[in-house]
């Protein structure tokens, strides 16, 4: 079997390694596909659905779809942009995301995606659910208000930290993150560091990076990926 395959992204031929996802292959070639739950070093959960693309006409999450030879992938279209926007809007309406008083603001991937996608208002009714802040752990806050159920921390705890300190419980709108016991989670765990939003934060670290100097303060999310490709200009 050949090590490499050739596929097309928005009409442009790229090469990718067997075993890569569409998302990884695109990024390596300087094409940014917005995403929230996928993280390079973790197994993709496919939970958020932001990274939807069309592959040979069929809709698919690019983070869980492996590359294969000859695929025609559509990343940029009004329709796909609309899907991504709507999903990000859903996440804002579903949880309690108060950016003005969140320590993650400026470093938050959800917020950064909303900036990038040009979301200035949310079409869905804000739910304002009643959720808890779990401050029991000596070093870690778990703020369920901000959790988007992406599964990064659960995945990291299970497969990177080899602890399964975190799991999801409940189903549907009652699905939420649960911790087995504070002893299982350590401040150095990967599970603690991978949260895209402000749901898992280390204590005593607030505002160590001042506003104005944060990850997405000056460049949109994805700009880093796109800088690998001189043909793409970050919007």
């Amino acid at each position: 079997m050949p090590e490499e395959v050739t596929l097309t992204i928005d009409g442009k031929k790229i090469t990718a390694k067997i075993g890569q996802s569409i998302l990884e292959a695109a990024e390596e070639n300087g094409v940014y596909i917005p995403h929230l739950c996928a993280l390079q070093e973790l197994h993709s959960t496919g939970a958020c659905r932001v990274c939807m693309v069309r592959i040979d006409g069929r809709y698919s999450a690019s983070c869980t779809q492996p590359v294969s030879d000859g695929l025609q992938v559509e990343v940029e279209s009004d329709e796909l942009l609309e899907i991504r926007k709507m999903i990000v809007e859903m996440l804002f309406a579903e949880g309690n995301h108060f950016c003005p008083c969140c320590e993650k603001s400026g470093n938050c991937e959800l917020q950064a995606l909303a900036y990038r996608l040009g979301i200035d208002s949310v079409r869905f009714p804000y739910q304002f659910p009643q959720r808890e802040v779990d401050a029991e752990h000596p070093d870690v806050f778990i703020d369920h208000n901000r959790c988007i159920l992406c599964g990064r921390c659960v995945e990291a705890s299970r497969n990177a930290d080899h602890k399964t300190a975190l799991e999801f419980i409940g189903r549907g709108k009652n699905k939420r993150l649960a911790v087995t016991g504070i002893v299982d989670l350590d401040r150095a765990d990967k599970a603690v560091s991978v949260c895209p939003v402000g749901a898992i934060l280390l204590k005593r670290q607030a505002f160590q990076v001042p506003l104005g100097q944060r990850r997405f303060d000056h460049e949109p999310i994805g700009a880093e990926v796109e800088s690998r490709n001189p043909e793409v200009r970050t919007p």
Partner: peptide
């Protein structure tokens, strides 16, 4: 025109909403 986070999302006053 909605100006600012409170007009746009409910904002800080809406922190009371789950109570």
């Amino acid at each position: 025109v909605s100006i600012g986070e409170c007009a746009r999302t409910g904002g800080i006053p809406a922190l009371r909403n789950s109570i």
